[in-house]
């Protein structure tokens, strides 16, 4: 429930910040920047200002949109590739399984952040690159989970029954097996959003993430870290936003797992 609360908090503020705040999250304000920049929290700037004199409160919550979008898009990307690959490997077995599993092993053999850095560095920084890099890194996790579930399910009586009734592969896979494998995938996807936000922030932190100037937590943390001796607030608040949102997704994912997995309910 705490996880759901945190997620709702970020989502609500991200959704309303656009019209609630008098400040622009991206435009550098006109006026005396030397006086405006890196100001501490005050009544006009609740969390202070960043290196370009922009309101931090507006940026931190506007960045929730960007970071949540990145988290969701990366997970969707991983899922769209991972689900069919895993399903095919688990259902058909044999060569299909060998091929997919070995390819996944290759992907898994790279430390995930290194693989993401390699992809991002070769393509140039940008939002699309981040989604692609972090998305690809997440594919094996989903594919393996789906494959494992499908492997167990395809031997179940209701599948044998369906097959005996003359159902084709498509029908069995999509209407009989996958709906029953969805529970763990939903949990994994929820946890995946948190991991993706963290990894995307990592890429931005080292300068390979989103476009310079974008309100995105990792990039804001990087800029804040640079200025920490002049003002600790930008680094503190963007770091806090990353921690809390990832914590939110993780708690929510754990909660979902407990709710969806009958065995864990029984134990309690």
């Amino acid at each position: 429930m705490a996880g759901l609360g945190l997620m709702t908090f970020f989502a609500l503020l991200a959704g309303t910040i656009g019209w609630a705040s008098p400040y622009d999250p991206v435009r550098i304000p006109d006026g005396d920047l030397a006086a405006l920049k890196l100001a501490p929290p005050s009544s006009s700037h609740w969390l202070g200002t960043d290196h370009a004199g922009r309101d931090l409160f507006t940026r931190v919550f506007f960045a929730a949109r960007v970071s949540l979008f990145i988290g969701a898009a990366c997970t969707a990307f991983s899922l769209v590739l991972g689900l069919p690959l895993g399903a095919a490997a688990g259902y058909f077995g044999g060569w299909a399984d060998q091929g997919v599993s070995r390819a996944l092993d290759v992907l898994l053999s790279f430390p995930s952040i290194l693989l993401a850095i390699a992809i991002a560095a070769s393509m140039g920084a940008g939002l699309g690159t981040v989604v692609l890099a972090v998305g690809i890194v997440g594919v094996p996790q989903f594919a393996r989970q789906v494959r494992a579930s499908v492997l167990t399910l395809r031997e179940q009586d209701f599948v044998t029954a369906s097959r005996a009734l003359g159902a084709g592969h498509g029908r069995i896979l999509f209407l009989d097996i996958l709906p029953n494998a969805l529970g763990p995938i939903i949990v994994l996807a929820t946890l995946g959003v948190g991991t993706s936000i963290l990894m995307a922030a990592g890429l931005s932190f080292i300068g390979l993430g989103v476009e310079a100037g974008t309100p995105e937590w990792g990039l804001m943390l990087r800029e804040g870290y640079r200025d920490r001796t002049l003002s600790p607030w930008p680094a503190l608040f963007s770091g806090l936003a990353i921690s809390l949102s990832v914590l939110g997704f993780n708690l929510f994912g754990d909660g979902l797992r407990d709710a969806l997995d009958p065995r864990s309910t029984e134990v309690r």
């Binding site: 435009r27 550098i28 560095a121 070769s122 940008g126 300068g207």
Partner: peptide, 27 residues
């Protein structure tokens, strides 16, 4: 990054739409 973001901001203030792409040393 800060130089790029400032120039983008200033060019967008005269109406251009600017896309930024960053590269590491070799690239």
């Amino acid at each position: 990054q800060r130089v790029a973001e400032t120039i983008k901001d200033q060019l967008e203030k005269i109406g251009l739409e600017v896309r930024l792409t960053g590269y590491d040393k070799a690239a």
